[in-house]
């Protein structure tokens, strides 16, 4: 399957998963909201142009917003992590080796330690910004702190499970592809 088709299917699946399953989960606590949709942005291929990456992230966040009735709330953090992603990848990855042989970030292509650092940091940044926006419109400081930590922990747990469930084969990029 070509990378384009695969990512379009993923786009739809992540939105549906977030809207119709995770947003329907009965709330356990006000700090704990299951978010996993932004994993889509973390899984996009290495080779995407940075501006295209941000545009995709914007469209992705916005289409989630249309379902939850909060236009722009999820789009802003998505664009932020799409902007930071290339910097972070440049820092973490040893140049010249991995980026050229694998097509997208993953535990196989980057190794467990760098990949968890990458996912952990971007998850934290995403939730920090998302809750910050929520906090500015209403709420108190304890809510802000608690929710950032709570949602980050839950998201990381779910991403870990997703990685275990769906072993993405670290596909080699050949000259033909």
């Amino acid at each position: 399957m070509s990378s384009l088709v695969k990512n379009i299917i993923r786009f739809i699946l992540f939105i549906l998963l977030q809207v119709f399953i995770l947003n329907e989960v009965p709330p356990l606590h006000r700090f704990i909201v299951p978010y996993i949709y932004f994993l889509y942005i973390l899984w996009l291929p290495f080779t995407i142009n940075r501006i295209a990456l941000m545009l995709i992230a914007f469209a992705f966040g916005l289409s989630l917003d249309f379902f939850s009735g909060t236009t722009g709330l999820h789009a802003a953090p998505c664009v932020l992590i799409a902007y930071i992603r290339p910097f972070l990848l440049n820092l973490i990855l040893p140049q010249e080796t991995i980026e050229q042989s694998y097509s997208e970030p993953g535990s196989k292509s980057m190794g467990w330690a760098p990949y968890s650092l990458y996912v952990g940091l971007l998850t934290f940044i995403h939730h920090f910004y998302l809750v910050l926006i929520e906090w500015l419109t209403f709420g108190d400081f304890l809510y802000f702190l608690g929710k950032v930590l709570g949602t980050t922990a839950v998201s990381l747990l779910m991403i870990f499970l997703a990685e275990l469930l769906f072993l993405r084969k670290g596909k080699y990029r050949t000259n033909a592809a």
Partner: peptide, 27 residues
């Protein structure tokens, strides 16, 4: 250019957010 387009997208998102929460009349 990348940074500027990042700022632009952020501003668009924030404007959409503030407009939708006050008047509920989204684009």
């Amino acid at each position: 250019f990348t940074f500027l387009s990042f700022l632009l997208l952020q501003v668009v998102a924030i404007i959409l957010l503030t407009r939708s929460s006050t008047t509920h009349e989204v684009f």
